[in-house]
Simulated scan of single mutants.
Amino acid sequence: MVATGWQEQQALAAAALPLLQVRDLTLEYRSENRTARATHEVGFDVLEGDRYVLLGASGCGKSSLLKAVAGFLPPRSGEILLQGVPVREPGPDRVVVFQEFDQLPPWKRVLDNVAFGLIASRQCGRDEARERAAHALATVGLSRAADAYPHQLSGGMKQRVAIARALVMRPRVLLMDEPFAALDALTRRSLQEELLRLWAELRFTLLFVTHSIEEALLVGSRVLLLSPHPGRVRAELDASGFDFANSGSAAFQAQQQRIHRLLFEL
């Protein structure tokens, strides 16, 4: 069937839309005695293939924003749109990698941990799920660990498995909540480099939370700065010109200092 002019215009308009739109989002946590506001009217757009970083001090609501995008935390006001459709609940098009190492069921071997989401969501049969899981493990350099149990892995290896488990789902947006914060400095740098290598190969869309200015500039192509509690948008910066090769440059240091001033100097 040949597309009409109107259909072509609609397709072009859809392609031009940001993949993810966050509009005037206010998030709150309510208990019987009090209400705590996490963010206040936060808005931003994430384009297809972006490495978009939410950066701010503890308590600025960046993890709450990630939970809301994942569908775990309903907004007090505002909205989240994925390809123009409101986000109401969790879905396989958004997969989260958390900071905690113990996010892998300990009774499952590594290969079965990676395949589990595919099987549970009925995206494919068990054999295909295991085949795709094996490929994902090879992508993160863990083929030899396929038959190991999580307790036999180091912290860095567990995070590689968690990344493989997320990527095997082929999500529209990969959500990462300070995934390397608890690792030692050398392992953290190794996994940052691994993440960027995977992005260059697969070109997924990344929404990444961190409180490290250096990590934000290294991992992100764009960085949203959030003010302290409750989180408000302070600024959005282009970080696409920075990488590991120029992380010691005067320009990199100057951008770090600028971000520090924007975050902490009122």
Rank of each mutant, 00 (worst) to 15 (best):
Thr4Trp: 09
Gly5Glu: 13
Gln7Pro: 08
Gln7Lys: 13
Gln9Val: 08
Leu12Glu: 11
Ala15Arg: 14
Pro18Thr: 11
Leu25Val: 01
Glu32Ala: 15
Glu32Cys: 07
Asn33Asp: 14
Thr35Arg: 15
Thr35Gln: 14
Ala36Cys: 10
Arg37Val: 15
Ala38Lys: 02
Thr39Gln: 00
His40Asp: 15
Gly49Lys: 08
Tyr52Met: 03
Leu54Ala: 05
Leu54Pro: 00
Leu55Gly: 00
Gly56Ile: 02
Cys60Val: 08
Cys60Glu: 02
Ser63Lys: 02
Leu66Pro: 05
Ala68Arg: 02
Ser77Met: 11
Leu81Asp: 07
Pro90Ser: 11
Asp93Ser: 12
Asp93Ile: 00
Phe98Asp: 01
Gln99Tyr: 07
Lys108Thr: 06
Arg109Gln: 13
Leu111Asp: 08
Leu111Gly: 05
Asp112Cys: 10
Ile119Arg: 13
Asp127Asn: 12
Ala134Trp: 10
Ser143His: 06
Ala145Arg: 11
Ala146Val: 05
Asp147Tyr: 01
Ala148Ile: 00
His151Val: 10
Gly156Pro: 04
Ile163Gln: 00
Ala164Cys: 00
Ala166Trp: 04
Ala166His: 02
Met169His: 01
Val173Pro: 03
Glu178Met: 07
Pro179Lys: 10
Leu186Met: 15
Arg188Ser: 09
Arg189Thr: 14
Ser190Gln: 15
Thr205Glu: 01
Val209Cys: 08
Ile213His: 04
Glu214Lys: 11
Ala216Arg: 03
Ser221Val: 07
Leu224Gly: 05
Leu224Met: 12
Leu225Asp: 04
Ala235Gln: 12
Gly241Lys: 03
Asp243Cys: 11
Asp243Phe: 01
Ala251Trp: 07
Gln255Phe: 04
Ile259Tyr: 00
Arg261Trp: 13
Phe264Val: 11
